[in-house]
Protein backbone atom coordinates (compact mmCIF):
# COMPACT_ATOMS: atom_id res chain seq x y z
CA UNK A 1 0.00 0.00 0.00
CA UNK A 2 1.53 3.29 -1.10
CA UNK A 3 1.89 6.37 1.09
CA UNK A 4 -1.29 8.28 1.95
CA UNK A 5 -1.47 11.76 0.40
CA UNK A 6 -0.82 14.47 2.99
CA UNK A 7 0.72 12.09 5.56
CA UNK A 8 3.81 13.53 7.25
CA UNK A 9 6.97 11.89 8.45
CA UNK A 10 7.80 13.87 11.58
CA UNK A 11 11.59 14.00 11.45
CA UNK A 12 12.03 14.38 15.21
CA UNK A 13 14.34 17.32 14.52
CA UNK A 14 12.07 19.98 16.08
CA UNK A 15 13.54 22.88 14.21
CA UNK A 16 13.14 21.14 10.83
CA UNK A 17 9.59 19.97 11.51
CA UNK A 18 8.63 23.54 12.39
CA UNK A 19 9.86 25.02 9.11
CA UNK A 20 8.71 22.29 6.71
CA UNK A 21 5.13 22.27 7.92
CA UNK A 22 5.22 19.34 10.34
CA UNK A 23 7.52 16.89 8.59
CA UNK A 24 8.49 15.42 5.23
CA UNK A 25 5.83 13.84 3.01
CA UNK A 26 5.66 10.12 3.89
CA UNK A 27 7.22 8.10 1.09
CA UNK A 28 8.75 11.26 -0.31
CA UNK A 29 12.24 11.72 -1.70
CA UNK A 30 13.91 14.79 -0.19
CA UNK A 31 17.12 16.24 -1.54
CA UNK A 32 19.59 17.63 0.99
CA UNK A 33 22.24 19.46 -0.98
CA UNK A 34 25.23 21.58 -0.22
CA UNK A 35 28.97 21.89 -0.60
CA UNK A 36 31.60 19.90 1.30
CA UNK A 37 31.51 20.49 5.04
CA UNK A 38 28.03 22.00 5.08
CA UNK A 39 26.65 19.31 7.41
CA UNK A 40 24.75 17.05 4.98
CA UNK A 41 25.97 13.73 6.39
CA UNK A 42 25.27 14.82 9.97
CA UNK A 43 21.82 15.94 8.86
CA UNK A 44 21.16 12.52 7.34
CA UNK A 45 22.46 10.66 10.38
CA UNK A 46 20.40 12.74 12.79
CA UNK A 47 17.32 12.11 10.64
CA UNK A 48 17.86 8.35 10.99
CA UNK A 49 18.81 8.47 14.68
CA UNK A 50 15.79 10.61 15.60
CA UNK A 51 13.60 8.20 13.68
CA UNK A 52 15.12 5.20 15.47
CA UNK A 53 14.49 6.88 18.81
CA UNK A 54 10.83 7.13 17.80
CA UNK A 55 10.69 3.46 16.81
CA UNK A 56 11.24 3.89 13.07
CA UNK A 57 13.92 1.71 11.53
CA UNK A 58 16.40 3.26 9.15
CA UNK A 59 18.68 2.38 6.26
CA UNK A 60 21.79 4.37 5.40
CA UNK A 61 23.34 3.67 2.01
CA UNK A 62 26.74 5.22 1.57
CA UNK A 63 28.34 5.68 -1.81
CA UNK A 64 31.52 7.06 -0.29
CA UNK A 65 32.70 5.70 3.06
CA UNK A 66 32.49 2.10 4.19
CA UNK A 67 30.06 1.49 7.09
CA UNK A 68 33.01 0.73 9.38
CA UNK A 69 34.72 4.01 8.58
CA UNK A 70 31.47 5.93 8.85
CA UNK A 71 30.92 4.65 12.39
CA UNK A 72 34.21 6.23 13.42
CA UNK A 73 32.98 9.58 12.07
CA UNK A 74 29.77 9.62 14.09
CA UNK A 75 29.49 12.90 15.94
CA UNK A 76 29.09 12.90 19.73
CA UNK A 77 25.35 13.10 20.19
CA UNK A 78 24.10 13.42 23.76
CA UNK A 79 20.51 12.67 22.81
CA UNK A 80 21.21 9.42 20.96
CA UNK A 81 21.20 5.85 22.15
CA UNK A 82 24.76 4.77 21.35
CA UNK A 83 23.59 1.25 20.53
CA UNK A 84 21.23 2.20 17.67
CA UNK A 85 23.71 0.87 15.11
CA UNK A 86 24.73 -2.18 17.18
CA UNK A 87 21.10 -3.16 17.66
CA UNK A 88 20.46 -2.81 13.94
CA UNK A 89 17.72 -0.19 14.35
CA UNK A 90 19.70 1.74 11.78
CA UNK A 91 21.57 -0.35 9.24
CA UNK A 92 24.56 0.98 7.32
CA UNK A 93 25.27 -0.38 3.86
CA UNK A 94 27.62 0.50 1.03
CA UNK A 95 26.39 0.95 -2.53
CA UNK A 96 28.91 -1.67 -3.67
CA UNK A 97 26.61 -4.23 -1.97
CA UNK A 98 23.84 -3.16 -4.37
CA UNK A 99 23.57 -4.28 -7.99
CA UNK A 100 26.13 -6.44 -9.76
CA UNK A 101 28.80 -3.87 -10.48
CA UNK A 102 28.10 -4.15 -14.22
CA UNK A 103 29.48 -1.28 -16.30
CA UNK A 104 29.42 -0.57 -20.02
CA UNK A 105 32.36 1.53 -21.14
CA UNK A 106 32.73 2.75 -17.56
CA UNK A 107 29.07 3.73 -17.32
CA UNK A 108 26.30 2.24 -15.18
CA UNK A 109 23.80 0.67 -17.57
CA UNK A 110 20.04 0.99 -17.31
CA UNK A 111 19.70 -2.63 -16.16
CA UNK A 112 22.39 -2.09 -13.54
CA UNK A 113 20.61 1.07 -12.33
CA UNK A 114 17.41 -0.98 -11.98
CA UNK A 115 19.34 -3.70 -10.15
CA UNK A 116 20.68 -1.15 -7.67
CA UNK A 117 17.19 0.21 -7.02
CA UNK A 118 15.84 -3.35 -6.66
CA UNK A 119 18.51 -4.10 -4.05
CA UNK A 120 17.75 -0.87 -2.18
CA UNK A 121 14.07 -1.88 -2.27
CA UNK A 122 14.96 -5.30 -0.87
CA UNK A 123 17.09 -3.76 1.88
CA UNK A 124 14.22 -1.41 2.82
CA UNK A 125 11.81 -4.37 2.99
CA UNK A 126 14.25 -6.59 4.89
CA UNK A 127 14.96 -3.84 7.43
CA UNK A 128 11.29 -2.72 7.47
CA UNK A 129 12.78 0.74 7.13
CA UNK A 130 10.59 3.82 7.35
CA UNK A 131 13.58 6.07 6.64
CA UNK A 132 16.38 5.85 4.13
CA UNK A 133 19.39 8.02 3.39
CA UNK A 134 21.45 7.75 0.20
CA UNK A 135 24.71 9.61 0.81
CA UNK A 136 25.73 10.88 -1.68
CA UNK A 137 24.04 10.61 -5.06
CA UNK A 138 26.82 12.24 -7.09
CA UNK A 139 29.35 9.38 -7.15
CA UNK A 140 26.78 7.03 -8.74
CA UNK A 141 24.91 9.52 -10.93
CA UNK A 142 28.19 10.70 -12.44
CA UNK A 143 28.65 7.14 -13.68
CA UNK A 144 25.28 7.21 -15.48
CA UNK A 145 24.12 8.77 -18.73
CA UNK A 146 21.63 11.57 -18.06
CA UNK A 147 18.63 9.49 -19.09
CA UNK A 148 19.77 6.52 -16.99
CA UNK A 149 20.18 8.82 -13.97
CA UNK A 150 16.61 10.05 -14.51
CA UNK A 151 15.28 6.49 -14.71
CA UNK A 152 17.27 5.56 -11.57
CA UNK A 153 15.84 8.49 -9.59
CA UNK A 154 12.33 7.86 -10.90
CA UNK A 155 12.50 4.19 -9.87
CA UNK A 156 13.93 5.05 -6.45
CA UNK A 157 11.17 7.61 -5.91
CA UNK A 158 8.56 4.96 -6.76
CA UNK A 159 10.16 2.40 -4.42
CA UNK A 160 10.16 4.92 -1.56
CA UNK A 161 6.55 5.92 -2.20
CA UNK A 162 5.30 2.35 -2.52
CA UNK A 163 7.06 1.25 0.66
CA UNK A 164 6.10 4.41 2.64
CA UNK A 165 9.78 4.91 3.32
CA UNK A 166 10.79 8.57 3.45
CA UNK A 167 14.19 9.02 1.85
CA UNK A 168 16.88 11.65 1.87
CA UNK A 169 19.16 12.03 -1.12
CA UNK A 170 22.36 13.71 -0.05
CA UNK A 171 23.68 15.74 -2.96
CA UNK A 172 27.15 17.21 -3.06
CA UNK A 173 27.45 20.66 -4.60
CA UNK A 174 25.35 23.71 -5.18
CA UNK A 175 23.71 23.13 -8.58
CA UNK A 176 20.20 24.62 -8.44
CA UNK A 177 18.56 22.59 -11.22
CA UNK A 178 20.26 19.21 -10.97
CA UNK A 179 18.28 16.02 -11.66
CA UNK A 180 17.96 15.19 -7.95
CA UNK A 181 16.23 18.52 -7.35
CA UNK A 182 13.88 18.14 -10.30
CA UNK A 183 12.78 14.66 -9.20
CA UNK A 184 12.62 15.37 -5.46
CA UNK A 185 9.53 16.10 -3.37
CA UNK A 186 11.50 18.46 -1.20
CA UNK A 187 14.77 20.37 -1.33
CA UNK A 188 16.79 21.47 1.67
CA UNK A 189 19.83 23.49 0.83
CA UNK A 190 22.75 23.75 3.22
CA UNK A 191 25.58 26.16 2.65
CA UNK A 192 27.73 28.98 3.89
CA UNK A 193 26.92 32.66 4.12
CA UNK A 194 29.47 35.36 4.75
CA UNK A 195 28.64 38.52 6.66
CA UNK A 196 31.32 41.04 7.56
CA UNK A 197 33.98 38.39 7.11
CA UNK A 198 32.26 35.86 9.38
CA UNK A 199 31.27 32.46 7.97
CA UNK A 200 27.85 31.13 8.86
CA UNK A 201 26.46 27.66 8.19
CA UNK A 202 23.03 28.26 6.70
CA UNK A 203 19.96 26.20 5.81
CA UNK A 204 17.05 26.97 3.46
CA UNK A 205 13.99 24.96 2.47
CA UNK A 206 13.58 25.57 -1.27
CA UNK A 207 10.73 23.15 -1.84
CA UNK A 208 8.48 20.83 0.18
CA UNK A 209 5.60 19.38 -1.78
CA UNK A 210 2.19 19.89 -0.23
CA UNK A 211 3.47 22.06 2.61
CA UNK A 212 3.39 25.76 3.40
CA UNK A 213 7.05 25.79 4.33
CA UNK A 214 9.28 28.60 5.51
CA UNK A 215 11.37 30.37 2.88
CA UNK A 216 13.67 32.15 5.30
CA UNK A 217 17.40 31.64 5.56
CA UNK A 218 18.46 30.08 8.86
CA UNK A 219 21.81 29.97 10.60
CA UNK A 220 22.43 26.45 11.86
CA UNK A 221 24.65 24.76 14.38
CA UNK A 222 25.32 21.04 14.73
CA UNK A 223 25.49 20.48 18.48
CA UNK A 224 25.65 17.37 20.69
CA UNK A 225 21.95 18.06 21.33
CA UNK A 226 21.29 17.90 17.58
CA UNK A 227 20.72 20.39 14.81
CA UNK A 228 19.69 23.87 15.95
CA UNK A 229 18.61 26.75 13.73
CA UNK A 230 17.69 30.40 14.14
CA UNK A 231 16.61 32.92 11.50
CA UNK A 232 19.52 34.80 9.97
CA UNK A 233 19.44 38.41 11.11
CA UNK A 234 19.09 41.12 8.49
CA UNK A 235 19.68 44.26 10.50
CA UNK A 236 17.25 46.48 8.61
Amino acid sequence: MAATPGAKCCTGMDCIDRIVGGGFPVGGMISVSGPCGSGKTNFGLEYLIRGAMGGQKGLYVSTVHSPGKLLTYLPKLDYADGKIFEKGTVVLKHIDEMGSGERDDGKITKSEAFAMVADIDEAIKEQKASRMVLDATNPILVEMEGWVARVFLQSLSKVLFDSKCTGLLITEGDVPDCQEHTMSDGIIKLGTAVRRGDNYRVLEVLKMSGAAHSRAKYVMDMTPEGLLITPMLRGF
Partner: peptide, 19 residues
Protein backbone atom coordinates in the same frame (compact mmCIF):
# COMPACT_ATOMS: atom_id res chain seq x y z
CA UNK B 1 33.94 32.75 17.39
CA UNK B 2 33.19 36.45 17.41
CA UNK B 3 30.77 38.83 19.17
CA UNK B 4 29.60 39.82 15.68
CA UNK B 5 28.16 36.31 15.16
CA UNK B 6 24.96 37.10 16.97
CA UNK B 7 22.94 34.15 15.67
CA UNK B 8 25.44 31.75 17.24
CA UNK B 9 24.89 33.39 20.62
CA UNK B 10 21.18 32.53 20.28
CA UNK B 11 22.04 28.99 19.15
CA UNK B 12 24.52 28.38 21.98
CA UNK B 13 21.95 29.60 24.49
CA UNK B 14 19.40 27.25 22.95
CA UNK B 15 21.94 24.42 23.16
CA UNK B 16 22.47 25.08 26.88
CA UNK B 17 18.71 25.17 27.44
CA UNK B 18 18.41 21.76 25.79
CA UNK B 19 21.38 20.39 27.68
Amino acid sequence: ESPTMLEYIVLKMEYLFRK
